[in-house]
Design a protein around this nucleic acid. Sequence first.
DNA 1: CGTGCACTTGATCTAAGTCAACCCCAGTGG
DNA 2: CCACTGGGGTTGACTTAGATCAAGTGCACG
Lengths: 243, 243
Amino acid sequence: MTRIDLQIAKAGCSACPIRHRAICASCEPTELDQLSEIKSYRTWRAGETILMEGANLPFVGSVVSGCATLTRSMEDGRVQMVGLLLPSDFVGRHDRDTAAYEVVAATDVTFCLFRRDEFRHLLSTTPHLMERMLQMSLDELDAARDWMILLGRKTAREKVATLLANILRRAASAGHPLRAELPLTRDAMASYLGLTIETVSRQVTALRKEGIIEMQGHRGITCADLSALLTAAGDDEDGATVA
Amino acid sequence: MTRIDLQIAKAGCSACPIRHRAICASCEPTELDQLSEIKSYRTWRAGETILMEGANLPFVGSVVSGCATLTRSMEDGRVQMVGLLLPSDFVGRHDRDTAAYEVVAATDVTFCLFRRDEFRHLLSTTPHLMERMLQMSLDELDAARDWMILLGRKTAREKVATLLANILRRAASAGHPLRAELPLTRDAMASYLGLTIETVSRQVTALRKEGIIEMQGHRGITCADLSALLTAAGDDEDGATVA
DNA sequence: CGTGCACTTGATCTAAGTCAACCCCAGTGG
DNA sequence: CCACTGGGGTTGACTTAGATCAAGTGCACG
C-alpha cells in the first residue's frame, strides 16, 4: 500500500473525492458502511497492466484518482481503445468472471476495489446500488455511442479536437477551466481516436499553429476559446459528446 | 392496430416470440402480469421514423419482430448508425424524457411498448426487472464497444464481412443457419459501418465474386462457409462481436 | 555523454471517398 | 400494353485524407 492509499483509507468514504459521483453516490449511510466493509484501495503506476483481456476478474471497482484505459485488440495486433476511465468511472462486470477488455494505467491510478462475489451479493440486496449501477451503465452506453459517430464519421482534425475538448471539460470540473495536463500519450490518443500517432501529432500541431490551443511541453494544454475548439470538433457549442 | 398486433395481443406473453430473451425474460408470472397490464403493441412500416433525435419520449419497449435502426447525426448531415434493434432488443431510457437517437423502422417492425412513467415505477419495485435491465444494458455496452473496434480499425472489407456474419448469426437462431434476408439497405449498411454506399456495394460484390457469399437479389444472402466469412471479417472463428 | 523514448516532420503510397454514368425493376398513368 | 419515372444498386475514373516509411529532434536518466 502506498502513502496515497493509506490517506484515503483512514479518511473513510465521507472524505472520498468521488463520493458523490461514483457507484456509491446514492447510497444511504448504512449502505455505505456495507460497501466500506468490502472495499480496498490499490494503486498502479503509469504504464502497468491492471487486467489482461480474458483474464480472471476477481475485483470490480471505481477509479479514485488518475486515469486508466480500456482497450480491445485484434489477433494481428491492431488496437482500439474503447473507454477512458477517469475518477468516479466504474470498471468490471459483476456477472462475468473474465475481463472483456485490457485495462492499463495511463497515469498513476488508484482504484477503490470490491471483491466481485461480495459486490454481486450486495448489489442484489441493495436497490439503491443496483439503480445507480444501471444509471451509470446507461450513461456509459450513451458515451460509447457518441464515440461511434466520432470513429465512423469525423475527420482526423475533428477527432483530435473532440478528444482535447473532452479532456479539458472533465479537467475543468476539478480546477481551472481552460488548462489541463493530458493523461494520455500520443500513442494512447491515437488508439482512442482510431488514428495513427503521426496523424495525431500533425493535428495537434495544426491546432496549435492556428492558435486554437497552446501547449506547455507535450502534455500541458491550454485553450483560451473553448468554442473555437468545439467548432473544430464539429460539435455545436452546446453539444454533449462526453468521454 | 394491424392484424399482426391483434394476434400477439390475444396470444398474451406466454406465446410471445421474445418472451425468454427480452426485458421480461426473468420475470415471475405475477410480475409478467404487471408488465402485461401496461403494455401495448404498435407496428411501423419500413422507412417510417419512430422517434426523432431529441423528441419527447413517452414510451420505452422491445422489438417483437422486424428491425429498426438507431442513428445519430451531425449538423452538416453526416450520419452514423449507433445500434441495430432486432427482436428482443430494448429501446429507450426510463430515466430520460427525450430520445438521444433517431429511431427508424428498417423493415416493418412491431414493438411491445410500455408507458415510460409506469415502466419506471415498475422497475423500481421489481428487482428481477431491474436486474435484467442492467444485464441487457451491460451486454449492449459490450456490443457497442465491439463495434468501436470495427469502426476504428477494420478495413472496408472486414467491416462488411463482419456485418454480414452478424446478421447471418442472429438470423440463424431463428431458422436455417446459413441463409438470411438482409434487413438493411446498402445505405443503412454504409451508415452502420462508417463507409459510403459505393464502398459497401463494391465489397459485397468482391465477397460474392470470391465465392465467400452468394446473393439472391439484393437482399437474400447465403453463406456456405461461415468460417471463411469470419476470416474475411478479421475475427477468430470463435470470436464474439455480436451486433 | 551516450542511450532511449516520446514526439515531430517530411515524402510517398493507398484505401476509401467523390463524382458520374448506368442498370434493373416496380409502380403509375396514358 | 408500354413508356416514363424514381429509387435502390452497381460500376468506373479520379481524388484525397490519412497511413506508411523514414529521418530527425529534444529531453530524461543512468
